[in-house]
Structure formats: C-alpha cells, structure tokens
Amino acid sequence: MQFQCVHRYKINKFGGYRVEVGGWTVDIWPLRETWAFKHGYVLFKGRESLLLTTITNWDAVAFSFKDKQIIARPSYLECLKLGELEIVMEKNPNPSGVLMRVIRSICDRQARILMPRLVKYLKQELPKWSAQEIVIAQEKALAISLFQNEFKLLKLSGSLIGSGWAPTEVQEKIAIRRAVWCESEMIAYMIWSARENTGVVTTRLAADESHTQSFNAIRILLIYLLEQLSDISPLQLNLEIPFNQSHTREVAVGFGFKLTQNPQCLTKMILGKVMTRETWSENSNELADKNNLHLPAGIPTYSEDSQYIQIVTPSGNREHVSLEILESALSPAIFCLPGRPAVITPVQRSFSEPLLG
C-alpha cells in the first residue's frame, strides 16, 4: 500500500522520514526500527521499551496519539521537579552528541542532583576530551540555536537548517560560514564545506529578500565565494537556494550559474585562470580532467565577443556558446585570445554605466 505525503519530507540518516509540519521538524520511523532496538542494545518488548533508548531520564517521555496517553515512568515528573538527572543509554552513533546533551542538561537546564550512573559516565568520558574539543563540539551543537532568529528572517525551515545550513553533523567537521549584516540584522547567509577533494563544492545561500539591501548582500557573498574558490579551481560549484528566493536566483544567474532539474539548485564551473596562448593547453587539460568540460584543442582567434566557440559538455554534448557566455559560465576567468585588443573584468552595472557610459 502506498501513501502520498502532503508535507515536505526527506530521508533522514537513520532511514526514517524527516517531515516539516506546521513549523515543526518531525522524524518518523517504525517503532521496531529504533536504532537501539535494531542494533541489539535494548530488547523491544513494547512501546514502553522506547523509554530505555533515550540519552537521559529527562528525555524518556512519549505521547500516544492513538490512546491520547503520556508514556513515562511513574517517577518522571518527580525527577524533573527535584532536578535529578540520570543517563539512560550512552550508546549512540554520535558519542559527542551524548556528551553535549548531558552538559547542556547540567548547565543550561540546571540539574541539581547527578545520579550515580551519570557521574560514572562523566568520569569515564570527560578525560577523553580536551577543553578545546568540548568547546568546538558545543559550538556545532549550538549552531542552529545561535542563529535561530536570523534563520527565521531568511525563511529557513527547521528541516533545511538541520540538513546542512548549520554544521551540526559529525561529517561536517569544518565548514565556512559567512553572513552580511545591516547593523544588528542578518540579511544574507552562506555556508560551504572547507574540505572538498572531489572537484565539486556545494554551497548554500539564502537572503532576507524583503530587505532593501538584499541584492547587494547576495552579490557580496557570491563575489567572496568565487574569490575564495578560485585558489582550488577548476571545480564545479553547486548552489542550493531555498524556495521562493527569486532575488537570490536572479543574482546567481548573473554570475554564470545555470538552472538544473532541481529547482532549488543551480550550478556553474569555476575556471579561475587567465587563458592565454601559453596557458591554454595546460588549463584546458586540467578543466577536462577535473570537470570533464572540453575546450577546443587550440586557442581560438578573437573576432568579436559574440563569436561562438565549440565545447564538449560533461554530458558529452557538443555545443557552440558565445565567448561572452563562456567567460561568464567559467568566471572568474579571462580569455586573452589572440587578436583580442583588451579584456575588461565584469563589474556591476551601477558602476559600469557612470564609468563607461
């Protein structure tokens, strides 16, 4: 039997579904597929067994929509009232997340009594971490909450934030985040991984398009991004944009990004080179090896900016594109073709019109 979900969803890292419902992010999975049951750490006897799979006793509560009942131990509310904190299950696919949750429960939620198993866990676990490692892990865990209000202004949903807009996953050990602020208000935000060895970089960009300076903020971030990535080019740059970000998409297209089958993703190549008679062969071969984009074997002779140059796309199709479009698609790049009298690097129209007329 198949069902159609009326809400936006994605597959989460445990094989369940992450659904956006009424501003809440909800994870859905079959009860028996709970990680602790599936890996044999807790024996499944019924829905009450779920209370043995949480990190702390404060998390061990559930609500049955079927019975309209709260599922918890009889002492649950009393433990909360007394501030008694105990660890229930320390086994977890994210060990740092367990420690960070315990630390936040002690410090932020002001636990007053640490129970024996929790004290034993802390004595065993804390020596494994340096103070700097704990601070870094806390920063990752708090990344979403630190920017929560700003993300709301950018209309980023909880599921989007959790899927890579804030570096909270273990595999995202190093990420670069940049934002443009107007006084105390964040109007544009961008994040990308600092370690890319595959020749492909994925960047996420969003802006508060209701702000009068949103266009300029988006341009600032894209210019900065292209400058930073030029050092490791050539490469393919994928740009992910939330729904209903028409300004962001418009500016990105002006920087040479192309639409893809995914309406939330644009892409472009970054050459990051000056193409001359002397560098043509080496740079063209590197572009072909890394990104499977093939330029002509020999450097073309310049006739006009609208002249067509034959290329072979990564999909294997032969296409003829104008020099102007090719430079934009591979920007930052300059094609110093034989016979070309001069090259002017692109500038914003608001600057070029007073300068050039």
Rank of each mutant, 00 (worst) to 15 (best):
Q2L: 13
F3I: 08
C5Y: 09
V6P: 07
Y9T: 08
I11Y: 10
N12D: 15
K13R: 15
Y17C: 13
E20S: 14
V21L: 14
G23Y: 02
W24G: 00
T25D: 02
L31F: 06
L31Y: 01
L31D: 03
T34D: 14
F37N: 00
H39W: 01
V42Q: 07
E48S: 09
S49F: 01
S49H: 02
T53E: 06
T54V: 00
I55S: 04
W58S: 07
W58L: 05
D59S: 06
A60D: 02
A60I: 03
A62K: 11
F63V: 12
F65L: 15
F65T: 13
K66Q: 14
D67E: 15
D67G: 05
K68Y: 10
Q69G: 04
I71H: 06
R73D: 09
P74L: 03
Y76T: 04
G83I: 02
E86L: 06
E86M: 01
M89V: 02
M89N: 14
S96T: 03
L99A: 03
L99S: 02
M100Q: 05
I106L: 12
C107N: 13
R109I: 03
R112Y: 01
I113E: 12
L118I: 00
V119Y: 02
L122P: 00
K128F: 09
K128M: 04
S130F: 03
V135N: 06
Q138F: 05
A141Q: 13
L142F: 11
L146R: 15
Q148I: 06
N149G: 05
N149D: 13
E150K: 12
K152G: 04
L154T: 01
L156P: 00
L160F: 12
P167Q: 11
T168L: 12
E169R: 15
V170R: 13
Q171G: 00
E172Q: 15
A175N: 07
R178G: 00
A179K: 14
A179Y: 11
W181N: 07
E185A: 05
M186G: 08
W192A: 09
E196L: 00
V201E: 07
T203S: 13
A207R: 05
A207I: 08
S210I: 08
T212C: 06
S214D: 15
F215Q: 12
N216Y: 05
L221H: 07
L222G: 06
I223G: 14
I223E: 15
L226H: 15
S230G: 13
N244F: 07
Q245G: 01
T248M: 09
V251G: 08
V251P: 04
V253I: 15
F255S: 10
G256S: 13
F257G: 03
T260A: 08
Q261K: 10
P263E: 13
L266A: 09
M269H: 11
I270Y: 09
K273S: 08
M275C: 01
T276I: 04
W280V: 09
E286A: 11
A288T: 08
A288C: 08
S303M: 13
Y308P: 04
Q310F: 00
Q310V: 00
I311P: 02
V312Y: 04
G316D: 07
N317E: 14
E319A: 08
E324F: 09
I325K: 05
S328R: 12
P332A: 12
A333W: 02
F335A: 01
C336A: 10
L337S: 03
L337N: 01
P338R: 06
R340H: 01
P346H: 11
V347Y: 11
R349F: 06
R349H: 06
F351G: 04
